[in-house]
C-alpha cells in the first residue's frame, strides 16, 4: 500500500522537469518549503512558478536563478516588506531576468477554480477601472453575461503541470487531511496534472469527520513524509509560524551575495532522505 510514498528527493527527481509549470500553494499556512528546497538542491530550472503569494520559498527559487516566470497576486514578505530577490529580479534582472504574470487574489482564486473545474476561464466582478487589466490583456479579458448583459472580468484558467502542497497528515493509502487555513490547496490539487504532497505525519486512520478537507489518494501522484516541512511557515496542530524568521529574512535576502551564502549553509548543503 505504500507505493505512493517515496522519499521527497525521488518525487522531485521523477516528477519535476526543467521548464515545468509548478504551483506550490499554501496561503501563509502549510507552505511546502522542504519540497521547494529539494527542487533547489536538484537544480531544476527554467521553471514557471505559480503561487498567489510567492513568499520566501519563491524568493529563494528566484534568487537561485531557477525561475523563468512567476505567476502571482501578492509578492511581498507579509507584514515585513519586499521580497528582495523577486524585486531585484524584476527591477534589475539579478540573477536572471524574470517574466511576471500578475493578478489580484480574487482573480487568481477564480483561475484555480476554473482549472479545477475543467473550464477555460474563471469569471469575476473585478478589475474594473484598474491598470492590472490594462497592462495584462493577454490573460485578463472582459466577458458579457448572456443573461443580464453585465460586463465581467474573465481570467484564464490555471492548469499547472505539477501541483505541490504540504499537509498535516496522510494515511497509509495516501489519503490526505488538511485543516486550519486551507487557502487554494483543494483547487490546486484538482487543477494540476500531477500532484505531490509532503506531510507532517503518516497516521493509521484520518479523522474525516471534523473540520478540514480530505483529498482522496487517487488524486495524489506521490506522497513524502517531511516533518517540519512547512517551516518557517506553519502547520496548525504541529508548530507555529516563525514570525521572527520572516523578519530576519529581510536582512538575509537583501543582497544576492548574502542570500547565496545563506542558501549554501542552510539549504544546499543539507539533504533529505526520509522514508516512512
Amino acid at each position: 500500500m505504500l507505493d505512493k510514498f517515496q522519499p521527497l528527493s525521488f518525487l522531485i527527481q521523477n516528477h519535476i522537469h526543467d521548464g515545468d509549470q509548478i504551483a506550490m500553494e499554501g496561503f501563509t499556512h502549510l507552505i511546502p518549503f522542504e519540497a521547494g528546497h529539494e527542487i533547489i538542491r536538484q537544480g531544476k530550472k527554467e521553471l514557471t512558478l505559480i503561487r498567489m503569494t510567492p513568499d520566501l520559498i519563491y524568493d529563494q527559487l528566484i534568487g537561485m536563478g531557477l525561475v523563468k516566470k512567476v505567476v502571482f497576486s501578492w509578492g511581498g514578505n507579509p507584514g515585513v516588506g519586499s521580497l528582495h530577490r523577486l524585486r531585484e529580479a524584476v527591477e534589475k534582472g539579478i540573477p536572471t531576468p524574470l517574466e511576471i504574470e500578475e493578478h489580484s487574489h480574487a482573480a487568481m482564486a477564480c483561475a484555480y477554480q476554473a482549472g479545477a473545474s475543467g473550464l477555460p476561464f474563471g469569471v469575476l466582478r473585478g478589475y474594473t477601472g484598474t491598470d492590472l487589466a490594462k497592462e495584462n490583456p493577454e490573460y485578463i479579458k472582459g466577458v458579457t453575461c448572456p443573461f443580464t448583459g453585465e460586463k465581467l472580468a474573465a481570467i484564464k484558467a490555471i492548469r499547472p503541470d505539477v501541483g505541490i502542497i504540504h499537509a498535516q497528515q496522510a494515511d497509509k493509502k495516501g489519503n490526505i487531511k488538511i485543516w486550519g487555513i486551507t487557502g487554494v490547496q483543494k483547487e490546486v490539487v484538482y487543477a494540476s496534472k500531477k500532484v505531490l504532497v509532503t506531510v507532517e505525519e503518516v497516521v493509521d486512520e484520518l479523522d474525516t469527520q471534523n473540520q478540514g478537507i480530505v483529498i482522496p489518494h487517487w488524486l495524489v501522484t506521490g506522497v513524502a513524509l517531511a516533518p517540519n516541512g512547512a517551516q518557517p511557515s506553519y502547520a496548525m496542530g504541529y508548530y507555529k509560524r516563525d514570525n521572527s524568521f520572516y523578519k530576519q529574512w529581510d536582512e538575509i535576502s537583501r543582497s544576492q551575495a548574502n542570500f547565496e551564502e545563506w542558501m549554501n549553509v542552510h539549504v544546499l548543503s543539507k539533504s533529505v532522505n526520509q522514508i516512512p
Binding site: 503569494t53 501578492w74 519586499s82 500578475e102 493578478h103 489580484s104 480574487a106 469575476l124 473585478g126 492590472l132
Partner: peptide, 8 residues
Amino acid sequence: PGAGGAPE
C-alpha cells in the same frame, strides 16, 4: 508587492 486582495 502588488494587488493581493485590495482591488476587489
